[in-house]
């Protein structure tokens, strides 16, 4: 039987039907950039690599940008990707958190957002985070980080946006996710574009509810803890939210939200 070349070319082949010659890929809701830093990337002139394979690290154009500039020289842009297939190609060829050096960070942020609170997209926001003792969690941190990244790139962190109810949907509140390795613990964080201020009023209450629903989803569906389980202990914290503005106050008037 004769093969119709045109029909064959038009056939949709996903990576599942043809892992080497697929002709369609799954776009992500947003492109994402992975950044990395560790003691090995700091204050060191890294070998020159071709411009095409080593994207320039931008400097944030914000008032805080000057303060962040020294830090921005130490943080390395690893890759920007915009498809499910490319994410997994990256995932399968990079070092998992459990094998990173002890003071390292991965930052996975939407393209164009610098992983610093000075960025326009972050400065009015905050973060959900959990701190986990290193020894007890070395075996599970990789899975927790993977599930955190998948909820980010799949854009399923915000229950308001995934309910399947019709209508015009508001913008995602998520700007990025971070995993940090330290000698005694791991920390996984989820950064949001806005944060409740504690001001009286329906708008702030509504925002607080939305932020809390994201935190509950993070704790139960992504990290896998039962909703009511208390997690704080030696070197461990609850899943807790703090606005970046309150973080600057160093705990004095910090209004943490815990789920």
């Amino acid at each position: 039987q004769e093969v119709d070349m045109q029909a064959q070319a038009d056939t949709i082949r996903t990576v599942f039907s043809d892992p080497t010659n697929f002709n369609v890929k799954h776009p992500l809701y947003s492109p994402w950039t992975l950044w990395f830093d560790s003691p090995a990337t700091k204050g060191r002139n890294l070998p020159q690599t071709p411009m095409t394979s080593f994207p320039q690290t931008p400097v944030p154009h914000t008032p805080g940008g000057i303060a962040a500039q020294g830090w921005m020289e130490d943080i390395k842009k690893v890759i920007t990707f915009d498809s499910v297939e490319e994410f997994w190609g990256l995932y399968n060829n990079i070092v998992p958190p459990s094998q990173l050096p002890q003071k390292a960070n991965y930052y996975l942020f939407k393209e164009g957002i610098i992983p610093a609170w000075e960025d326009e997209a972050n400065k009015n926001g905050g973060k959900w985070s959990i701190q986990l003792p290193r020894d007890k969690n070395r075996a599970v941190v990789d899975k927790m980080w993977l599930y955190t990244m998948l909820a980010a790139i799949g854009e399923t962190f915000d229950p308001l946006l995934t309910s399947g109810e019709g209508g015009e949907q508001p913008t995602s509140l998520i700007t990025g996710v971070i995993v940090s390795t330290r000698p005694q613990f791991y920390r996984i964080s989820l950064w949001t574009r806005t944060a409740p201020t504690g001001a009286a009023g329906a708008d702030d209450d509504k925002l607080r509810e939305r932020i809390e629903s994201i935190g509950r989803h993070f704790k139960t569906n992504v990290l896998g803890y039962p909703e009511g389980q208390r997690l704080a202990g030696a070197l461990a914290t609850e899943v807790e939210f703090l606005s970046h503005k309150d973080s600057e106050k160093k705990g004095k008037q910090a209004k943490k939200i815990v789920v």
């Binding site: 990395f36 090995a40 394979s53 080593f54 990256l90 990079i94 070092v95």
Partner: peptide, 11 residues
Amino acid sequence: SLPPLDAIGLE
């Protein structure tokens, strides 16, 4: 587009 990991200190 993934650079050599050792070139960015990621090992």
